[in-house]
Design a protein around this nucleic acid. Sequence first.
DNA 1: TTTTTATTCATTGGATCCAATATAAATAAA
DNA 2: TTTATTTATATTGGATCCAATGAATAAAAA
Lengths: 241, 241
Amino acid sequence: MSKPGQQVISRLRQMILSGELESGQRLVEIPTAEQLNVSRTPVRIAFRTLEQEGLLTKLSGRGYIVRQVTQAEISGSIEVRGVLEGLAARQAAENKLSKSQTNELLRLLKQGDELFVKGSINEQDLAIYHDMNQRFHQIIIEASLNPAISEALSRNEHLPFASVSALAFDRNNLAQEYRRFNFAHMQHHAVFDAITHGQGSRAEAIMREHANATLGYAKIFSQMEDNGEKMHILKNIDSII
Amino acid sequence: MSKPGQQVISRLRQMILSGELESGQRLVEIPTAEQLNVSRTPVRIAFRTLEQEGLLTKLSGRGYIVRQVTQAEISGSIEVRGVLEGLAARQAAENKLSKSQTNELLRLLKQGDELFVKGSINEQDLAIYHDMNQRFHQIIIEASLNPAISEALSRNEHLPFASVSALAFDRNNLAQEYRRFNFAHMQHHAVFDAITHGQGSRAEAIMREHANATLGYAKIFSQMEDNGEKMHILKNIDSII
DNA sequence: TTTTTATTCATTGGATCCAATATAAATAAA
DNA sequence: TTTATTTATATTGGATCCAATGAATAAAAA
């Protein structure tokens, strides 16, 4: 069993990421502690940790609120992810992949092929592809052998993925979603090809392009961008890309 | 007066960055609290904060140690900084600089010109240039209007700068140091030029090149690279670039 | 009515005690 | 002698009390 202190942190984190706690909702130590049946101490530490992770915002003297982000912040965060994952792809190409990394990436690509070969996509496929996508990116970051990349990403690890998903995934237009995600999958193929051929610059360019493709989706709800409305960090983490 | 809790954090941070605490030195809550004349509570919070900043490493059950980094980690960190500052330069060019930002950058460049016009450099000049350099980069990051960049950098903000300095600055070869820093200054001019002409890609490329120039310096002490010796995060923050 | 100044109240920050845990040491068994 | 097991010790984690702070409110002055 893991430590209770860590449990408070991950429990609160999950409550934020799942949308159980609304964006902008106020969090105060004592009520939160009572709700979680712990004392203030672990809650205090959790609040500070989550603030550093960028999930909470401190209101001096009046507790914390679940972080609100603007459309501009989401876009900025996506661009940051783009350059960092681009660097990861470059360095993965320079280092060469390990045997097991190559095999797992090949397996993921093949799985994706099978998913897209039918010419349509449903929500269940999407859930599967979501996990595969996460793993694909994770392997490349690991293959960079550069821990500073994941350290830099850790600050707003969830932000780009999830918020985009909440914005961009249109359950009423699965045909269009199919084309989007199929294209993303083709980019995965291209990234893998570049990496295995040791083409660092090409791998970087494709990966960056791939990440930035999300930018367009993030701007779909243009009224949000126009009026600067703030929104939840990331409900419904079912994003792709 | 700022809060005492923050004081403990910044005091410890400064002790680490200044080298007062050796790399690998063990830190335990109670002795540290006694030394700083506070209770364990603020020290506990400070340790966790500094761990997340990447300055301390946790030894489960036996306190913390001042983080040790390898040559490879420093190089990786420099590359991360490179892509992030490159992105900042690109976005600064796309957004255009504010009047005051333009003026301050121009002033910094002119100051630098005066420093380098004499054809030689001493340690005092270097201290001055260090501050100017920090400010130059800071303005460009601000001008990107992308808070995710500084968030991503915050994790290992100090790492590349300082560790490079400890490695690379050769007080016995000031002529060579002059050429290096003069070249870096010329790159500042080029970055500024690209930004003010709205040339985002060019600004990004130069900035990345500029940051990566540090890589070579970081490898000067090649024996460290060979045997993977671990070293202090960053004594003597007097780095340039 | 507006502005300033007290006052109250909500909330966090610090200190200290006790409990839980993990490492190190010592002992016993193989 | 080596390995396993127990014991002791060092160290962190959690709970709770009290102090300090800052925001909201009420009162007083302009």
